[in-house]
Design a protein around this nucleic acid. Sequence first.
DNA 1: TAGTAAACGAGACGGTACGTCCAGTCTTTGC
DNA 2: GCAAAGACTGGACGTACCGTCTCGTTTACTA
Lengths: 208, 208, 208, 208
Amino acid sequence: MSEGPRKTRGVHRGPRSRRIVESVREATIAELVRVGYANLTIGGVAKAAEVNRTTIYRRWPNKQALVAAAVEPLLETYEVDPGTGSLVGDLRALIERLRENLERPDARALTRVLMLNIPDLHDVVYASGERTIGAFDRAFTSARARGELGPEADLEMMSHLIFFGMLYWLIRHERFPSERECTRMLRVALASAPGVEVPDPAPADGSS
Amino acid sequence: MSEGPRKTRGVHRGPRSRRIVESVREATIAELVRVGYANLTIGGVAKAAEVNRTTIYRRWPNKQALVAAAVEPLLETYEVDPGTGSLVGDLRALIERLRENLERPDARALTRVLMLNIPDLHDVVYASGERTIGAFDRAFTSARARGELGPEADLEMMSHLIFFGMLYWLIRHERFPSERECTRMLRVALASAPGVEVPDPAPADGSS
Amino acid sequence: MSEGPRKTRGVHRGPRSRRIVESVREATIAELVRVGYANLTIGGVAKAAEVNRTTIYRRWPNKQALVAAAVEPLLETYEVDPGTGSLVGDLRALIERLRENLERPDARALTRVLMLNIPDLHDVVYASGERTIGAFDRAFTSARARGELGPEADLEMMSHLIFFGMLYWLIRHERFPSERECTRMLRVALASAPGVEVPDPAPADGSS
Amino acid sequence: MSEGPRKTRGVHRGPRSRRIVESVREATIAELVRVGYANLTIGGVAKAAEVNRTTIYRRWPNKQALVAAAVEPLLETYEVDPGTGSLVGDLRALIERLRENLERPDARALTRVLMLNIPDLHDVVYASGERTIGAFDRAFTSARARGELGPEADLEMMSHLIFFGMLYWLIRHERFPSERECTRMLRVALASAPGVEVPDPAPADGSS
DNA sequence: TAGTAAACGAGACGGTACGTCCAGTCTTTGC
DNA sequence: GCAAAGACTGGACGTACCGTCTCGTTTACTA
């Protein structure tokens, strides 16, 4: 026990441990994509990771923790701000980034997982949602700072509507909204902001 | 034995059978409220319904089917149209109905279930969502028929935004939006419809 | 056939009822041959007999009774005495009858059933065994009456040894004893009876 | 993880595992004695062994395998040869050993099990029977080696008749044959061997 | 670089639930 | 009204995971 001069103290960070952790993470995501959260089993992940089941339990206490840890790094994608200089530009850029993410099948699967209302997953999911929506919030805040939006504009609500409108269009229709649909959504959601114009999508060279 | 025509044909519809089916349905919902979908067990439902586990398996092949069958009748709540005579009135009435439903703990639990992305539940869930959103759609359609909305108004998008905006406000904040927040949401979401005014909530006896 | 305790009062005895009883009996034996006693199910018999499961339960209280009733008539095969005029002739005839029975697959299956030590089947089985062995006993008794066997001959024991020796040769070797083996068995088992000679089987025209 | 070849090889042989295996074996036999094979349940054995049902399934795939494994060691009782120096002495000793075994209720129950014609149990049963009969065979072989039996004696058949005659006397009469009956049986079965005398049982001090 | 803490692989265990099957009883149906 | 059809209770089956544990063995800190 803690008696006597310990020779080592910290956790292992050697190549083997790192390899294992990474291998498990990848396997977790792969399994998630393959069978979904409900059918995810520790044994399955262990086999896919070519690791012993026990090893997984040693590091992650249960399925939720495992998934949370595996999924976590993916959320950083949305951290950065686009910085296109205009509100509509920023939003379009964020939506584009969403699209890029969600059109990769693995991310699609992960998104489904993140939208599960599993109680134990709630924290990760909530954090993930807030982090992603945060990017939208920042786009609005920057726009106000630039003077694009007046003080009466309801930033929070616009951000909320656009984000969830986007996300659930995907869920409802099983596909990402088209350029046209994005434009429609932005127009409706931004209508309360005077002076903000949402031009037609690129291919159509429409003036306002 | 191949002795002539069969003597009976249909399934049982007697009082006992009916009682059992109903009892199981109630127990399923009660258990769903009590422990949630993830922890729902057929055995638990059977015990709560004072019915044998086998009896449940005879009628519903698995948990998904059981839950789907149990939940299905609840979706009819949203079928009727409020008919208040104005778009904002209708929307407020629908929101009010949502609130009434979602503030009852059992309906809360059911809503959570409906928002689970369980593959086998997908059909029921999708149908449920569409049915509910349908009420919003109809409110908009009626409004256009009454002349409240012009042909350029994007009914589908407004409906979509309001519905999912509402639903996910609940999820994000773990409470139903307040009157004030509903007003804000409606104002943002309806801003693109010229001529539609969203008055302050009732307590303030504001003029337009 | 011993139809067990009647479940209804006015049991029908018309052609239909008789047909059903017979059909069930045949199906029981067929199933017994097909799947064996352990895997015999009332449902299986009912299906094979094209009769409702309930119908079987109405007439036979349980599986054991059903099998007992179905098997019972088969035991009468061994009732009659061969009457060849000599002990060895009678025994050979009885063995021949055994062979005929046991080489038909259905009788093989039934024999297996009869050799199961199922408690509830014990009575039928015991009765069956005793009835069959009774034919051997009678052969010995007749022989003594004819003067072939003296008073010191242990009829009971010889009968016992020949019968079970026969039966378990079949079980052990998975085939009926050959003519040669029958001869050997008879010679050993009848050696204690002075004056009884067991000639070689027919094909070999051996001298004494 | 693909870290080279396997690091351990065998199953666990620690004291705990051994204890469990032994405990299950004892419980199996106890249950067999208590309720019989037909009513034996894995759950019952598990409870009696104070072990989880799963644990049993992990080691033995089903009831048959469990019983086979539990019963197997009991068969070794008959392996050794008596070595009394005379054929009749050896046979009497073997019969005595049979009696000792079969008069203990647990062995009685086991014997019943072994005589069940259950297909899945066939191998154990057959092996068991052959092993036991082997002791009788050896007694005859030794007798011939000693010159007690001439080359014309049908050892195999005598052994067969005595063994099954013995066993089924037990079954038929629900009790082990008495000394007197054993003597009668031996006399009849050994009559074909010239020079072999079967004296009266001990209590009667009869000369030949 | 040696010794020891930390991590790993393998196998097993107690548990819980699953979905299936069957025995035997009870309830509906329909002629 | 009654026999057939069908549903119900109860219990066992064999399977799949979960999360925990022990026991050797291997890895990688650190003195």
